[in-house]
Write a protein that binds this DNA or RNA. Sequence first.
DNA 1: GTCTATATGGAGATAGAC
DNA 2: GTCTATCTCCATATAGAC
Lengths: 201, 201
Amino acid sequence: MTTRSRILQTALTLFNEHGMYQTGVRDIARALDISPGNLSYHFARKEDLLIAILDQYKHGNDEIYQEYMHFEPDLERYLQTISRLLKNAFAHRGVFLGLDELRAIFGKEYDYADVERKRRAFIDTILSDLEKSGDLEFSTLDKSFLIDFLAFFQRCWIMEAMISYPHLEEHQIMTRYMRFVVMQFAQVATLKGQGALGRWL
Amino acid sequence: MTTRSRILQTALTLFNEHGMYQTGVRDIARALDISPGNLSYHFARKEDLLIAILDQYKHGNDEIYQEYMHFEPDLERYLQTISRLLKNAFAHRGVFLGLDELRAIFGKEYDYADVERKRRAFIDTILSDLEKSGDLEFSTLDKSFLIDFLAFFQRCWIMEAMISYPHLEEHQIMTRYMRFVVMQFAQVATLKGQGALGRWL
DNA sequence: GTCTATATGGAGATAGAC
DNA sequence: GTCTATCTCCATATAGAC
């Protein structure tokens, strides 16, 4: 494994455990048993580390969406997809706490609006397809509301999880938040669609 | 006005405008035209500033809830109450971006769990009363879900607002998020209750 | 690529005079 | 209470040996 990717991995672990604010470049170097100078060689600024991790997160999300899109629309598979998206966010949770720092690089070196645009477009397409396939049914109002909710939820849940339930295990976190999402789908699922919801409640 | 409260006010304004991370004690002192040393006399650590602002926020929330509780249950008034809670959060938005720093003081010098416990208890009571008064009706599942949603929403919305819509005016922000809440109430409002929702949609 | 060593600048915090 | 001057710490940047 390259030093670069070892640094990335270790940085993420430390960010996840102690937060970005509390983790210095020295801490990362020490954990890897390399020199701070060496770390600076690979990542000139701490910010570059953050950007690399965010890219990794974004890339993971894209893959998960692409894989879903590759097959026929199916509510059960969509819920699994959401579950995978949540796991990806959880794996990168450390960086989402540094909002204040994040905001400083959003719009400059990292295109956050792009993530958001893609997310909404995906959700819109997916919901429309699930309507056609007969898993969901809603009035126009319901659909735009559900898109808003899902986009909102996917942006926020990880922050709330970190603040409100810092000590829960990953699977407990997943159970809690998947249940939360599925409750929203319960409002618009057809009789056919209901079947997919059962295993998450 | 005491120097202490002038510091508090100025700090909050700067935190709101530029973020806590980007605002140093020197910036606050300069804006007030006092010395950094003087600021340190009133607030030994930057953290103490943060704690004081959070206390102010908490106190504001308590007052808003107390006032609602002082009269008869009414859905329209509850929505106005939520609107006031959102405005209070917006007025203190600067500190909510410093999650990473916040987390470090939660549980030590600031009792976050207490805020959360109170919030859920209030919401639970309020919803139950609105059920009795015939504004809302739900199965047990719906009610616990709505409590979850409202608690979740009230913790998270301000972070999403700061990240996703940093340039919107306060009233635009309010319109957007109130609509979001009201859509949830629409799922459980009785015919009588529907009347209260109209003005927010 | 990786190391040691060191410089720089900016942050929060402190000491002591007034 | 308020000031000026100073301290310490840390992120980052750079130099130069291996």
